[in-house]
């Protein structure tokens, strides 16, 4: 059975002044799955994301997305290929309204570049309907006209997901999408992720293991920059090395 791999890395390595945050990572994400990347703090998960989305240039290794070598591409161009990330530290546009935050993503997808400085903002109103629908999907309707800076942390995360979804990306990289959320929001977000995963691929970093267990098809465990184990939740959670890595990190 040939696996349909959408994103693959080989020997991915990132060195910060002699310190290998990511060390020879081989990762294969199958199309249409939810793939979780877990590991103790400082394992190199976020650094991996930064490499995959070209926010960092790897010291060594290659990245292939949809059979295309994207190792040398620029971040914005990778996003245009449909490989879109969210950030661990909630990344919104604080001085735009909630609707505008989502709309800025729609604007990129539907209009391409917007160098038209001579046109009135009015032309963007055509996107408001779709933007509001996305705002509603993440439960932020009541805040549609609020500035993003005024939102609580959990709501900022929700807004970030809505903004990411507005790009209708083929593949989503979510860095701890539920960090800082209350129970209710975690449930809603988990449902949302499952819903949007229908015709997409998702690679997700998440510390909430029950979420990981219920959502993901496959899990890769990272520790000290290296892949420690890979498989479904049952396999991985029983792996003694994984257990040790988590406990070891807990003591450190």
């Amino acid at each position: 059975m040939a696996r349909d791999v959408i994103l693959a890395t080989d020997g991915l390595t990132m060195e910060f002044k002699g310190f290998r945050a990511v060390n020879g990572v081989k990762l294969e994400v199958e199309r249409g799955t939810i793939h979780a990347l877990i590991g103790p703090n400082g394992a190199g998960k976020t650094t991996c994301f930064n490499l995959l989305t070209k926010f960092l240039i790897p010291t060594a290794g290659t990245i292939r997305y949809k059979d295309k070598d994207i190792t040398g591409m620029r971040a914005a161009d990778v996003a245009r290929l449909g490989l879109v990330r969210s950030f661990q530290i909630s990344a919104v546009f604080p001085h735009l309204t909630v609707t505008e935050n989502v709309r800025i993503a729609l604007q990129r997808r539907l209009r391409g570049d917007s160098f038209d400085f001579w046109r009135p903002e009015k032309v963007l109103r055509a996107l408001d309907g779709e933007a509001l629908a996305l705002v509603e999907a993440v439960g932020l309707s009541d805040f549609a006209d609020s500035l993003a800076v005024e939102l609580s942390y959990g709501r900022k995360r929700a807004l970030e997901i809505a903004t990411t979804l507005a790009l209708d990306p083929e593949m989503l990289l979510l860095d701890e999408p539920m960090a800082g959320m209350g129970h209710e929001d975690v449930d809603r977000t988990a449902q949302l992720i499952r819903r949007v995963s229908k015709d997409r691929t998702i690679l997700m970093v998440e510390h909430n293991l029950s979420v990981v267990a219920s959502l993901s098809d496959r899990i890769t465990v990272l520790a000290r920059g290296q892949v420690l184990a890979e498989g479904d939740y049952a396999t991985v959670s029983k792996d003694p090395r994984v257990v040790e890595a988590y406990i070891g990190a807990g003591h450190a």
């Binding site: 989305t53 926010f55 914005a76 996003a79 505008e100 570049d113 917007s114 038209d116 009135p120 032309v123």
Partner: peptide, 29 residues
């Protein structure tokens, strides 16, 4: 005034607010 309140101006504000995020949305900042 028009530049500020144009589709271009909107992207500009986004980049000013959070450049990495704007890039991650596909804008060549």
């Amino acid at each position: 005034y028009r530049i500020i309140h144009s589709p271009f101006g909107q992207v500009l504000k986004a980049i000013r607010d959070n450049e990495p995020r704007a890039i991650s949305l596909g804008y060549r900042a």
